[in-house]
Design a binder for these strands. Structure first.
Lengths: 363, 363
DNA sequence: ACAGGCTCTGTTATCGATAACAGAAACAGC
DNA sequence: GCTGTTTCTGTTATCGATAACAGAGCCTGT
């Protein structure tokens, strides 16, 4: 009696082995393209596998080989083109080497992130990528003790858990404000979310506040657009509130291009000329920034590059080429558009440098 | 000697069992909240697990229990808000029951889809969701033989592999054209991709052609915007070509809202009034449709609802509540906007009906 | 007092692959 | 011809959990 009766479940390697007249070890080797299998034998095995409709069971292989080929990744939202781009960069960089990205989203909620990370770690990923530098204490502990490479992205945390591929959101906005102040803008507002939920948004506002204080300007023009993430619609509503309350504002810096575009449409509805009457800037270099009329002045944080670099880093850490955690600094770039005019200046930093480091502190 | 030396890898249930003074079977039961564990014992076990930093190994559990709790899903692109919404609906519907969505994207490429499906099936998902009704022959075979529920979405294929949650893209556009023709439009163009790659886009064009033929109108105003998916930028470029070649066009129906918005911006750049000089319609009810100036006349295919229904269906199929494949018909709804004016009409279909059926054919 | 049921825990075998080791056959070099 | 190497294949144990079965201890009803 064979172990497997007809219809008792999908065929296993043992079934293929029997059909091909070899041992299941030989089947295993043949399917993995291990050099040490005779060409004829391999052909017979592949043929048998095809005939039986054999499908490799990655679960069993993972258990025995202690190798899942999973890379876990969490993003705040799957509906955001910036994060989607990062996932794309990550996936494309990893798929070529046979890794499968195991994706989850947190809805910008640290408690949800904790649950998600816990779930994902049970799958025994080879590495894990998370967004942002702020996490619950338990999340930090889980990640630190997981014994796998950890990469934080889209941020430069003060105390990284492991590696980092990111940039300072505060610095990026501060640099933008510097440019606008140099161009003569004074009455500048910031339009963002009101909660501490979106930590990157909060960091951007902090950069705004810091810059305004530095230049001795009034930083009280803060418009909250509701619970993050701020959509186009909420950006428009917040802009309406701003125009009603502080109509003499010269420039509105928005937490993202989506909010900025919403703000732009509100101006269009009111017949206000952008940038003549009021200027608008965004963040993220979303598609809309390059096509809207006028185009949006924004900051490109190179989302896809973040993913690509994270993938590269993980591959290095896994194959031993890279040892120890790395901080990869992404240099966001100001992209002047028609919504907030800036005089030409010599190019902002273009290179995205990678620096190795021992102690965990941002370069 | 204990089996596990210090530092010989992460702790297992056996380690927790030893620390708590019970058998590993009791640990297994305690962690799964199996009723039959004494409260005190369970507390001791959870405590030991926490102390040791134990992380459950889902791989081992999956192998033994023949239950991975994975649901595989493929979408054409992760950078598309419509598909992201479907994933959101799917994930939210499944996460509550402990399932983890295993997501992959195909880049609108059927060969890539085949590779992806093959990869995903190796993970032994409990069910699989794919986008669209067109697949390579091998993909169809793989799915049909996988022995798990298969759900095709965003389409109503002639020969479903298993279940379906979708709608006819051709019918939706045809109905839209009917409305516009009734409103007096005659010189109508269709702006879409030129390849057969995006099958949903091709179906929409087919619906356009069918409707125009039905009404005895000239359907030669077809503008190709390059390789799908058509972005905002390509929509603008295609609109430019259209305005140059066929400046007397009254209405442009675009394969998606993104293309439609790009087209709208091109008109704005040229100073053409929309909808007065030329009207524009889109597809998808993306965020941009509700906020642009003017808002876009579009069709809402209820992307999130598609995901939610797919999740519901899968849960039913897995727990036996639902038997056999189902066809769930989504009824896309026309959303009149400012970019292409329509006289009021009594509401289009609002209900999204579900119909059981035996033979695989669309209702 | 005893059968029968309930609560709780343990023992053993197993899921389907691969690591580690072993060995047969063919070939090369001297 | 003999040893050493290369090529190819097989045997056995194992990854870490859970299904299936078994049974001890205690309660309940008659």
């Amino acid at each position: 009696m064979t172990r497997r009766a007809r219809g008792a479940g999908p065929p296993t390697m043992a079934d293929v082995a029997r059909a091909a007249g070899v041992s299941s070890m030989t089947v295993s080797r043949a399917l993995r393209r291990d050099a040490a299998v005779n060409e004829e034998t391999r052909a017979a095995i592949l043929d048998a596998a095809e005939r039986l409709g054999y499908v490799f069971d990655a679960t069993a292989a993972s258990l025995r080989a202690r190798r899942t080929d999973f890379i876990a990744a969490t993003i705040p939202s799957i509906n955001n083109a910036n994060f989607a781009d990062t996932v794309r960069g990550l996936t494309d960089g990893l798929a070529a080497r046979g890794y499968q990205v195991l994706l989850g989203y947190t809805n910008y909620d640290m408690a949800e992130e904790e649950r998600l990370v816990e779930q994902l770690l049970r799958r025994r990923p080879e590495a894990i990528v998370v967004t942002g530098g702020r996490h619950t204490a338990r999340t930090r502990t889980l990640l630190a003790k997981a014994g796998i490479p950890v990469v934080e992205t889209w941020d430069l945390p003060d105390e990284p858990i492991g590696s980092v591929v990111g940039f300072s959101n505060a610095d990026a906005v501060e640099a933008m404000v510097d440019r606008f102040v140099a161009a003569g803008f004074r009455r500048i507002a910031f339009l963002g979310g009101d909660a501490a939920r979106d930590t990157r948004g909060t960091d951007r506002r902090r950069g705004f506040l810091r810059a305004m204080a530095k230049h001795g300007l009034d930083a009280a023009r803060l418009i909250a657009g509701g619970t993050p993430p701020i959509s186009m619609r909420e950006g428009a509503a917040a802009m309406a509130a701003l125009l009603d309350r502080l109509p003499d504002t010269e420039l509105v810096i928005c937490v993202s291009d989506l909010a900025a575009f919403g703000a732009l449409t509100e101006c269009q509805r009111r017949g206000l000329a952008v940038p003549e009457t009021i200027a608008i800037a965004g963040f993220g270099d979303y598609d809309i920034a390059g096509i809207s009329v006028p185009t949006l002045t924004t900051i490109d944080p190179f989302p896809r590059e973040i993913g690509r670099r994270a993938a590269e880093l993980i591959l290095g850490l896994l194959d031993g080429t890279v040892t120890g955690p790395r901080i990869v600094a992404i240099m966001p770039q100001l992209r002047p558009g028609g919504s907030a005019l800036l005089p030409d200046a010599d190019g902002a930093g273009r290179a995205n440098a990678e620096t190795a480091q021992k102690s965990p502190s941002a370069p």
